[in-house]
Nucleic acid binder design. Structure first.
Lengths: 121, 121
DNA sequence: ATAGCATTTAGAGTCTAGTCTAAGTCAATA
DNA sequence: TATTGACTTAGACTAGACTCTAAATGCTAT
């Protein structure tokens, strides 16, 4: 699969795909005889995972750590699990924070709708 | 209330408070005779709102728009409501995305815990 | 009154995560 | 054969949101 196809499939840019490869999140992706990337199924699986985690706000730095641990083999299983568990906690915390903000936002909108707005922001 | 006290209260830095003021999200904050900021209750209310919305990822640009509309008075009520409703939608969407990522993360962690991990990332 | 710490300003610097540019290569098409 | 369009690289640039620095001034305690 070409970079363009992959970019379209995952709704991201070619640049981002090359960038992820440069920082070591994916690949190195195989290139054909004229130096053009040809993404494997495995590459696609990784990209999907990375994309999903990125959309949740997990940093490239953390993802890179995970990928590097994976590359080191089975001996890092526990470490990887712990890393994921930490990210799970952070993510749950973030979702909680955002849900609280959403509630306040909804309350404020209610004030607008019912014209009960006080004099503050 | 001094900048230091406010910063501590809301767990942010003095720099961030001055920055928010510079870009027009709050204030201008009243200064005492020697030029030192003295935050009012109203300032605090605003800071709390801004902080809450920022923690949900609402951009400074959008918050600035809201603040500016507020400053223009009652005639902008509908516009403000619409702005908030748009942000509500975006926020709900973001929470949904993050919840999906969280589910995948949990699933992956389950694989680690039960030692059913396949050969991929 | 002088040391030491907090505050002020303007403006420069930092970090993250891309995004863009320039210069070059390659395959297909007019 | 010449042009077009997609791809390549290294590296510069950008946006957003702070964060830090320097130089000046002010308050407080010794």
């Amino acid at each position: 699969m070409t970079i363009k196809e992959v970019a379209e499939k995952f709704n991201m840019t070619n640049d981002t795909l090359r960038y992820y490869e440069k920082v070591g999140l994916i690949g190195p992706v195989k290139k054909n005889s004229s130096g053009i990337r040809d993404y494997s199924d495995n590459d696609l699986r990784r990209i999907e995972f990375i994309k999903c985690m990125r959309s949740a706000g997990i940093s490239i730095e953390v993802l890179k750590m995970y990928v590097d641990l994976y590359a080191k083999g089975d001996s890092t299983k526990l470490e990887r699990q712990q890393l994921l568990e930490e990210e799970q906690e952070k993510l749950e915390e973030k979702i909680k924070t955002m849900t609280e903000a959403l509630d306040k936002l909804k309350y404020k909108i209610e004030l607008y709708k019912t014209d009960k707005l006080d004099k503050y922001l």
